[in-house]
């Protein structure tokens, strides 16, 4: 009888768990979900190990790293390492290069997939649309190393595609574009657009096809032609998606794809191609000044995060609290 009573009590505990408080409540709920918690163990351990512990390790930026004392035991030096960065007369060129490359990518690269998606959406030729879509995804799968390899091949001074065209047209001038201060940014940005344009349309095409047909119908009855409907129906409908993408892009404004920049660097274009992240890699890991690298990297992250928050605030203001991300 006592057993049954206990059982009853347990059930009523579950049923009335809403009224319970504190530890008891936690424990009842935990018993209900323990299998789900077990599932979370591996991912949580992983993210703490490979994300949060390194964040804790950022403090190396304020210490003089020594191999002997390790990460936590090295001497505290404050902002000395950051001061060293600003003491380098080249620091402004690193910042300028980073910003100009990424702003150029943003201005040229952000609208292109949206425009392409609109073109694909508006066009009526189904087969052509499908082929263009699928073909435009292909460059996305080319790796950074191979992409830079392709660029080097195509722009090769003597044997590249450009040289071939020049020969056909009878132009004897042979510029070496890969080792050219003026050409570096254009090559970097437009090859990036070539690679990513098609892939980025996926999201926009998906949101365009979700636009309600009734809106189009109503606009048509009001006498709007296709172009007007693009402007007054399609674009406003995908505006929230665009603003979220824009915020995310701003979050990466200081973190230019260093993998590609690093591979495209050579001694000639270095004045325009040395960016903060490649500088961090070279000084921090290649030359072994880990604290210096960490300090410069931290500054970079800090600017990044500030920008995201700022842009998010602005978008939220502009769209009356609808367009923001968080």
């Amino acid at each position: 009888m006592a057993k049954l009573e206990r059982k009853m009590q347990q059930y009523s505990l579950v049923l009335t768990s809403n009224r319970k408080k504190g530890w008891d409540l936690f424990w009842t709920r935990f018993k209900k979900n323990w299998q789900l918690h077990v599932m979370m163990i591996l991912p949580v351990v992983w993210i703490i190990m490979f994300h949060y512990i390194p964040i804790y390790g950022i403090q190396i930026a304020f210490r003089e790293y020594s191999n002997y004392y390790g990460m936590w035991g090295s001497e505290y030096v404050g902002f000395l390492k950051l001061a060293k960065f600003f003491g380098n007369y080249k620091w402004s060129s690193y910042v300028v290069n980073t910003l100009s490359i990424s702003l150029y990518s943003l201005v040229a690269g952000f609208p292109t997939p949206i425009i392409l998606a609109l073109i694909i959406h508006v066009n009526d030729r189904k087969i052509l649309k499908k082929i263009t879509q699928n073909v435009s995804y292909i460059p996305h799968f080319i790796s950074t190393v191979v992409m830079v390899g392709i660029l080097i091949r195509i722009f090769d001074q003597y044997t590249g595609l450009l040289a071939s065209f020049n020969r056909l047209l009878g132009i004897t001038d042979r510029p070496n574009l890969m080792a050219n201060v003026d050409a570096f940014r254009h090559i970097y940005v437009w090859s990036g657009i070539w690679q990513g344009m098609g892939w980025s349309t996926i999201l926009y095409i998906a949101s365009l096809s979700a636009v309600s047909e009734e809106l189009h119908e109503a606009a048509r009855i009001d006498g709007a032609n296709r172009l007007k409907r693009v402007w007054h129906v399609d674009i406003p409908a995908i505006l929230p998606v665009i603003s979220i993408q824009l915020i995310l892009r701003f979050g990466h404004i200081m973190s230019v794809g260093y993998e590609k920049v690093y591979l495209m660097q050579n001694s000639v274009n270095l004045p325009v191609s040395e960016i903060i992240s490649t500088h961090v890699y070279k000084r921090g890991i290649q030359d072994g000044d880990l604290s210096y690298g960490a300090a410069v990297g931290l500054m970079n992250t800090f600017i990044n995060t500030t920008l995201v928050v700022l842009v998010n605030w602005i978008t939220t203001k502009l769209t009356d609290g609808e367009g923001g991300l968080f």
Binding site: P54, I55, G57, G251, V280, I285, A294, G297, T301, V308
Partner: peptide, 13 residues
């Protein structure tokens, strides 16, 4: 997703 440690702390860890 929004805040990472950066290259060097990861390398050290």
């Amino acid at each position: 997703m929004f805040f990472g440690a950066g290259l060097i702390p990861h390398y050290l860890w």
